[in-house]
Amino acid sequence: MHKPLPAARMARRVALQNLVLAIAAAAVTSCDNLDNFEVDVGAKATIPPGTILDELLGVLAFDDFQSINLTQELDNQGVTKEDVDSVRMISLALVIDGPAGANFDFIESIAFFAETEGQPKVLVAELDPVPKGQTSLDFVVSGAELKPYVVAPSMKLTTTTKGKRPPQETMVSAAAVLDVDVTVPGC
């Protein structure tokens, strides 16, 4: 038969149990925040002016998007491609860098796709129609799962564009943000 614990001892035991529960809850919350990080990917393109013979835009080529390898970014976070659970694009934007006064009126619609060997081409972001008079564009992202593309040796982002070449050489910057969800040991 057990004797009842004195009130002070019981209060300490309850306080200790509450502390253990609070630490456990904090650890779970911390793991939720630790297993996701964002990776910024940027690129630039120069669009030559249109001529009478070569007016249609077709593809907007961003050289830095032609071979994306996130191995270094994963290494910086202390994870490997095997630790990746999920990757999704969370934003994509284009900005006119020059010339002064230029805008995106030469583009009617534009879509970005992720591609890698052995996987189908997948839509990641689009804008249709492109609003008139804009010097920057924020895209609607598809939410497509990009893990198979990111863990491949390299992936590329390509475009499909409707429009005409601009009246003068135009420089454009692209900025994409990827949300990478990884497995963190011990979480």
Rank of each mutant, 00 (worst) to 15 (best):
G50M: 06
M10N: 14
G101W: 08
P167W: 01
P185I: 01
L34V: 12
Q119V: 04
D35H: 14
A102P: 00
A175M: 05
R13S: 13
A45F: 04
E73A: 15
I23K: 09
Y149V: 06
G143V: 05
N69K: 05
V79H: 04
G118I: 07
Q72G: 10
T161D: 03
A175R: 09
D138S: 15
L157M: 09
K44Y: 09
V122H: 00
L19V: 07
A93N: 04
P48H: 00
A125E: 11
E126H: 08
S91R: 03
N33F: 12
D83K: 07
A174H: 04
T161Q: 00
I107K: 11
V130K: 04
H2C: 02
T51D: 10
A11D: 02
R88G: 09
A100F: 12
M89L: 14
V172L: 02
V41D: 01
A152H: 10
G58E: 10
M171T: 07
E38F: 00
A7S: 13
L92T: 09
F106N: 01
V95M: 07
M155W: 15
D40I: 07
R12E: 13
V151H: 00
P131H: 01
T158V: 12
E82I: 02
I107R: 14
T29I: 12
L92D: 08
S173K: 14
N18D: 10
D75H: 14
H2Q: 07
A144F: 01
M171Y: 06
D75R: 10
